[in-house]
């Protein structure tokens, strides 16, 4: 059992929890993730590591509820426990493992979208702690959906944007990047993390601008340890497994259209289970599965 020390709602649909998991906190690095199983009947769900404290032995997770298991997680409060919490999974970010002198020379820009802002934070924080300054573009549909503004502004040059212009620059993250470049800013390394569609367009833009780009893939996963093969993604001509080869890949080589289709593979089934969970005793059909419609 893993104790939840803090639980907080960050925006309309994004939540943050601080979990006591000393083994994971001791070994995790920016770019890695964890798998959580809330209770006996829950799915194993991969979640982002947003922060870690090696001394306190804690991991901060940030997530958006989508299926039954994440909705169960939302209901838990500080003091409650999660049944299983395993990690760190995936390879650490190249920025952390590559030759430090090389990384130091790079002019780095992050593009974060929605809940994808969370995994960007530990990378930017790591760079900041190692004396490397970076630019961070954080985008959201509207002001109320922006998260981690304070944290982000403390670790890099923050550029906020909203689709509707309710806060910061009006437009998507990639438009912000194009603006910075047109103003004469130069970047030679981009990390884009967010919804698949956002990463796809970020990569189209950076390809045009000639900026090598790393993305963090979050495909369907079961065990997360390199056993099930559910998380395979096409990178160029090669099949790669996000859990052991990733989650970070060269964004210019990813087949995003296929990745998006694969991500939707269990949607109907998950939707049915979610409907049943949310309606509980009052569930009498509508899921197309239980026979209640007839």
């Amino acid at each position: 059992m893993f104790k939840i020390l803090e639980a907080e709602q960050l925006s309309a649909n994004v939540y943050k929890q601080v979990i006591l998991a000393p083994r994971v906190a001791k070994s995790c690095e920016p770019g890695q993730f964890v798998i959580v199983r809330v209770d006996e009947t829950a799915e194993r769900i991969p979640l982002t590591i947003c922060d870690y404290d090696r001394e306190a032995g804690t991991i901060t997770i940030v997530f958006q509820p989508i299926g039954v298991s994440t909705y169960k997680l939302v209901k838990l409060k500080a003091g409650d426990s999660i049944l299983d919490f395993v990690g760190p999974l995936g390879r650490p970010s190249d920025l952390v493992t590559d030759d430090f002198e090389e990384v130091k020379k790079k002019k780095i820009v992050f593009i974060a979208g929605g809940v994808g802002t969370a995994p960007v934070y530990p990378q930017a924080k790591w760079l900041h702690e190692h004396g490397i300054e970076c630019d961070i573009i954080v985008g959201a549909r509207t002001k109320d959906l922006l998260i981690l503004e304070k944290e982000m502004s403390s670790v890099g040059n923050l550029h906020l944007c909203t689709d509707d212009g309710s806060y910061g620059f009006k437009g998507v993250g990639t438009a912000m990047l194009e603006k910075l470049v047109s103003e004469g800013r130069e970047f030679d390394h981009c990390v884009a993390i967010g919804p698949m569609i956002m990463m796809k367009f970020a990569c189209l833009t950076t390809k045009k601008l000639g900026i090598p780009t790393v993305v963090s893939m979050n495909p369907i996963m079961v065990d997360g340890t390199g056993m099930c093969g559910a998380c395979r993604v096409m990178v160029g001509d090669e099949v790669k497994f996000a859990c052991v080869d990733g989650p970070e890949f060269d964004g210019h080589k990813i087949d995003f259209d296929q990745a998006m289709k694969r991500a939707a593979m269990y949607k109907t089934e998950e939707g049915r289970r979610l409907l049943k969970y949310q309606e509980g005793e009052t569930h009498h059909g509508g899921c197309g599965n239980c026979g209640g419609d007839k």
Binding site: R23, V24, S27, V86, G87, P88, T225
Partner: peptide
């Protein structure tokens, strides 16, 4: 919940 090679 301990992955040797990752957790330890």
């Amino acid at each position: 919940d301990v992955i040797i090679g990752r957790t330890v």
